[in-house]
Amino acid sequence: MALNYSIYEAKARFSEVIRQVREGKTVTVSYRGEPVAEIRSIRHRQNPTLDERLKDLERSGELVHSAIPRQTLGPVGRRPGALARFLAERGE
């Protein structure tokens, strides 16, 4: 959950902003309506694994699973040799 504060509000409510960040929320600070900074907690681990990062993003609501089931992908180029023709046209 992201929270938005103007610079003036963030300065006036700094303790509240820090409390929200400690709870795992992300705070956006704006200047004249334009976002200029984002305050979020520092993870205890400097290099989280991909699974840990994905779980963190799911918990924060920044990552949600698609309602559409996964599909197997087919080839993009339907004609064989498309890459070779493309590179030949570019002179590579």
Rank of each mutant, 00 (worst) to 15 (best):
S66I: 02
S60H: 03
R13C: 03
E62I: 11
T26M: 05
P75D: 12
V27K: 03
L63N: 06
S41E: 13
Y31E: 14
Q20N: 15
I7W: 01
V36R: 01
A12P: 02
I68N: 03
E89P: 02
V29I: 15
A2W: 02
R70L: 12
A12M: 12
R78Q: 13
S66G: 04
R70A: 13
S15C: 00
E34D: 10
G91N: 08
P75L: 06
V21M: 06
R13E: 08
E58W: 06
I7H: 00
S6Q: 03
P35E: 12
A82C: 02
I7Q: 04
A37P: 08
D56I: 12
A12T: 10
G24P: 09
Q71K: 13
L54E: 06
I7T: 05
S15P: 01
G91F: 04
R32C: 08
Y8L: 04
L83W: 14
I39Y: 04
L54D: 00
P35K: 10
R19C: 05
E58Q: 12
S60Y: 01
K11S: 07
S15W: 01
T26D: 01
T26N: 00
A67M: 05
V17P: 07
Q46P: 00
L3F: 01
L73K: 06
R79S: 10
M1S: 11
L73M: 08
N47I: 14
G91C: 09
L50R: 14
P69A: 13
I39R: 00
G33I: 13
S66L: 10
V17L: 12
V21D: 06
K11F: 02
R90Q: 15
R43N: 15
S6M: 03
G77K: 01
Q71H: 12
H44R: 15
P69C: 02
R90P: 00
I18H: 10
P75S: 06
